[in-house]
Design a protein around this nucleic acid. Structure first.
Lengths: 213, 213
DNA sequence: GAATGTGAATTTATTCACAGCA
DNA sequence: TGCTGTGAATAAATTCACATTC
């Protein structure tokens, strides 16, 4: 296998790997055991060469003239994405979005262990939403260090997101999925991905407004 | 103003406009009335030339030597994104995510009117989550046509997403925000944007796994 | 002097097209 | 023959750099 430094992998390839993995798992569960880049491309709606090139950053997973073995490919991509072991996740902010996420069972299936949930409001501290009792925000740093938290999903109000992410960074959490509608300047060494529903809706209205042509 | 055909605007510019709009509104509400591309770029964490170029697809909004008037820019981008009138939105799927979205007040502030909510399960039909009573899925097409629904947020299980989006397309809904964890092949004339939380988490683990360098 | 608006240069991503192998 | 893996070609996006205007 050749060099797999993150700097060799285009940023856009990574989310596509997740896409491939999902489709491949589906194929596997349907009993399909071989697939070509052409088939996969058609199923997902991409170019076949793109799929092959994406794989090529990590190794040679297929057989010329034949295609890819689905089970092998699932294992390889699982490994590429770091999903061959589990990750400790917390939710900061036990509002509407935070509690919906806490109750969602889809994450556990992918190896994401929800180990804690935090909020600043006395009215929800102690309540339970499928992730143990909600802890007070004061416990955040201690908990993150002790429990080796890998990822925080931040669902606090916009005005608190920056400070929250700063605290997480200081407590050694290196990855954040931020649902607050602010683009936060990521502290050094912290990876922040933004989930921004208003922005998504606005991208839709942009094209809707131009659809008359 | 020059040509503003959607084909002249790079796809990546559109979500950035939403980002600019949010920051500019914040500046306006803080009483800031002028801003340079350099300032804005620093606040958001982008290159100043990129911001200027993004604006340039739509017109000339600034004054050389001076900068941009915040209020003017807010209006211009609001218009570019089609946000100077309101849009009718429905939610299909009254599960965890659907009900959380229904109760979220942030959308209304942006001009998104939640006009209906649908589910197939008898146990939730008739319940209310801040968007009127939940209607049965059988009413979907009739409702979309009558109420001129613009956008559907789809929060149904993965296996039902494709069929649901097909029905929406047939009923004249041209834009979908899909939360179901499947990349749906968009029917002709329908814009589908994907909100995929598992994929986002997987992108984070990819980089976490490589962080040791 | 200061900051925009934009061609040109650069970088990044996608797609083509074909050599190489089962 | 059929499909992978990958250099080369193309397309898209970003950034530079500067003429232009206030």
């Amino acid at each position: 296998m050749r060099n797999v430094d993150k700097h060799d992998v285009p940023a856009v390839t990574v989310p596509r790997l997740a896409l491939y993995l999902r489709k491949l798992r589906e194929l596997r569960s349907r009993g399909v055991d071989r697939v070509s880049s052409k088939d996969l491309a058609e199923m997902i709606g991409l170019n076949a060469a793109q799929i092959r090139k994406d794989f090529s950053y990590f190794g040679e997973f297929g057989t010329r003239g034949v295609g890819y073995e689905v089970a092998r490919l699932v294992d390889e991509i699982t490994h590429c994405l770091g999903l061959d072991h589990s990750w400790n996740v917390i939710i900061v902010g036990a509002g509407l979005m935070g509690t919906a996420l806490a109750r969602y069972r889809g994450f556990a299936e992918q190896g994401f262990r929800l180990v804690g949930m935090f909020d600043s409001s006395a009215t929800v501290i102690g309540a339970s939403y499928g992730a143990g009792r909600v802890r007070g925000i004061a416990e955040l740093e201690g908990f993150c260090r002790e429990e080796k938290v890998d990822i925080a999903m931040v669902t606090v109000p916009a005005g608190e997101a920056e400070a929250t992410i700063g605290r997480l960074a200081a407590a050694g959490v290196h990855a954040v999925l931020n649902f607050a509608p602010v683009k936060v300047q990521a502290p050094d060494g912290v990876l922040v991905r933004q989930v921004d529903l208003s922005s998504e809706l606005m991208s839709l209205t942009f094209y809707l407004d131009r659809e008359l042509d």
